[in-house]
Design a protein around this nucleic acid. Sequence first.
RNA 1: GAUCCCGUAGCUCAGCUGGUAGAGCAUUUGACUUUUAAUCAAAGGGUCUUGGGUUCGAGUCCCAACGGGAUCACCA
Length: 552
Amino acid sequence: MVRRRCSSIVSYAIMGCPRQHPMSGCVICVSFQPHQSYLAMSELHRNDQELRRFEELHLLRELGVNPYPSTFGKTHTNAEILSAFSDDDPSPLADVFVAGRIMAIRKMGKASFVHIQDVSGRLQLYLKKDDLGEVYDHLKLYDIGDIIGVRGFVFRTRMGEVSVHAASLHMLCKSVTVIPAGKEEIDEDGNVKRYDAFADKEQRYRKRYLDLIANPHIKETFVKRARIISTMRRFFDTRGWLEVETPILQPLYGGATARPFMTHHNALDIPLYLRIADELYLKRLIVGGFEGVYEISKNFRNEGMDKTHNPEFTALEIYVAYKDYVWMMDMVEELLHTVVNDVHGTDSTTFGETEISFARPFARKKMFDLFAEHTGHDLRGKQRDELVAIAKAIHVDVDPSWSAMKLLDEIFSVKVQPHLIQPTFVIDYPVEMSPLAKAHSTEQGLVERFELFIMGKEVANAFSELNDPIDQRHRLEEQAAIRAAGDDEAMVVDEDFLHAIEVGLPPTAGLGVGIDRLVMLLTNNDSIRDVLFFPQMRPERNASDKHPEVEA
RNA sequence: GAUCCCGUAGCUCAGCUGGUAGAGCAUUUGACUUUUAAUCAAAGGGUCUUGGGUUCGAGUCCCAACGGGAUCACCA
């Protein structure tokens, strides 16, 4: 096998190396022969373009070039070069070191233009044989995808592009595979047009590193994501609230209605669950005496996946003592206002065609007022049968077996939610929908809870936390009964949590924010997969795999 | 889980009512010392996702599997 593969390289080398000048110093002719078996067996499946790159790698080493050096004294990012250059006085950039991945090579005989891409963008290099000598000939061993560094001076070409004129050229990392680098054209308006874009969504999600190289503009989404989160941290920290970490592996799960992932601890020989929410642990910390705690962390829910659901997702939860949900609404307004300003520099963001204003105050509407407004019916205190009849009358498909809570939820989703485009707090929910929220101080059957909707999507959920231990036990036992009746998403009774509530939770306002959805909203992405570097994907498998299925 | 659409060169795609597989870019060779999707000339590159079936003959038609996308359902 090795022989067969070597012979293909030999024939390739001969083909690629015209015999006309065997003594001319052509690196391929002179250096190739003695080393025909440097490729490992595991590399046998390589295609011709990859084989050529392995060959080039080998030849670079033969020439005494280390294709994987340890450091390079990079002095400027590409963007810094472009912004710092002045035609009037180029002298400050007379000796710079730049580095990046080769995205385009245009050879003009004894001069070449190369575009390199670094974290900040693209920069053109001008390489001339007169300046580089024999190193210029090595350029034939360089490819799109290699990472190179250059020392040189900055100038503007005749075509007007600020470029680095190379005095020396260094291979920093030889790439041995092909990257999908489509060509780019920049029109007069500065718009980048891409040709042969790397557009296969599946491959983009599976091989995000290639996506980031081929579609560098997506970096903006992830930079904004990082800024959104860091702005939130700063906002909370300056107010004296403590960032904490609570268990991901939990013997009991709770704080939300959702199916968990299950795992097993060998030494303890017990089942453990991956958390579905932080709530119950954070409240224990308020019981313990902290007066403001927050956590930004991954939650895990073993449910379906779609545009807005990934099995692991990032949530913010914050609890502040001696506050209620009205105070929390003000805080959320201020928080989002701050975040949007930090990220966009203005009060608003554009999602699709819609401009969304985060100017304060946001609309605040009672849930049952919204029902009246959008259905024409007053649903307060209605029994299940009445709700079924109303649903029928307003053409909402419902299952008559659903609970009153589920019916309200469905009517809300269909009739109300799509209208909540600008930031809107929906307040005062029925108690059945909120087993951890405090009973409303004035309205019978309601709890002090709000959800914030933007673009018809829930962005935040908060309430005055239930701290009446008898009420809390009663509601969790109701959940347990629902669970026993077959709803495996209902909450389980957590005795230690109930004990903490019996010890005494001060009046507390709590808030949860789905970070991924907030990032989607603020970066104009309609799929959660576009705001996660590595969204969960079905394992890649093809029918020709011969691996037998592993039985558990 | 249901329905619809998709899977062809490294990338983006074309391929008609079945008849020996196409383009652009990328790659290789040659020319070119300020180019801009550089250009010009030549060349290599494919088990058409996989497995069955119909047919003299399948990239194309049928069935199934695998993978993906969209919509819905489930679900915050």
